[in-house]
Design a protein around this nucleic acid. Sequence first.
DNA 1: CCAGACGTTGTT
DNA 2: GTCTGG
DNA 3: CCAGACGTTGTT
DNA 4: GTCTGG
Length: 229
Amino acid sequence: MCGRYVLKITLQELQQKYGATPEGIFTIEENYNVAPSLHMPVIVQQGDQRKIDKYRWGLIPFWAKEINSGYSMINARAESLEQKKSYASPFKSKRCVIPANGFYEWKKAGGEKIPHYITQKRSELINFAGLYEEWKPQKEGEAPIKSFTIITTDANKPISELHDRMPAMLLDEELDIWLDPENKDTDSLKDLLRPWPNDDISFYRVGKEVNSARNSGKQLINPYRDLFS
DNA sequence: CCAGACGTTGTT
DNA sequence: GTCTGG
DNA sequence: CCAGACGTTGTT
DNA sequence: GTCTGG
């Protein structure tokens, strides 16, 4: 699954990589411990234009009464997108890509949870497949909130050592197909949400400082060092 | 028909 | 809003 | 995802 | 145990 990730990139680099223009004025700060509820950069397509915007991590269904409705919609299972009421409609027309440099998974060992940092080998920047939604507060005059969720799929071979799920990730050449809001070919869209190739994943253990979302510095991705080795 | 849920993961 | 359960 | 709080009244 | 905050 995917509940924390890393983003260390400038807005300029994002524009260049995705050929996207920012919606409004905002800045991007590098964060080595991105946690749910933060507003993070996403790539969406409007018409034939790619846009960069910041949405909130944790999808809020458009019909929700309250922003904290008790749901935990930070991930969406690829296998059941069309069956789940909260995801069926965004899957049809509100697909997005969440840029990340890597992500964390916790491996259960006995009673312990051991954090690991995972990256792709070939690409410095990962394209998480996601869905977004726009939620309008009931109170008049309050700004709508756009939010997103990261799609998960079966873990590939290396990641299955840590966990049985992993985020769905896209090739650069698949982005046009995924982002096109006019694309209604859900069968081929689902085909994009496969486990990532085994030979393009690497990971290593990191220190427990990442456990607290209050920490966000670059030392969090330093390899774990046993004090007694 | 109306009421109530609408999510994932992990653990039991 | 839309689907499921009663 | 994990960490941390989880409560009220009255007094300083 | 469960919810909120980061």
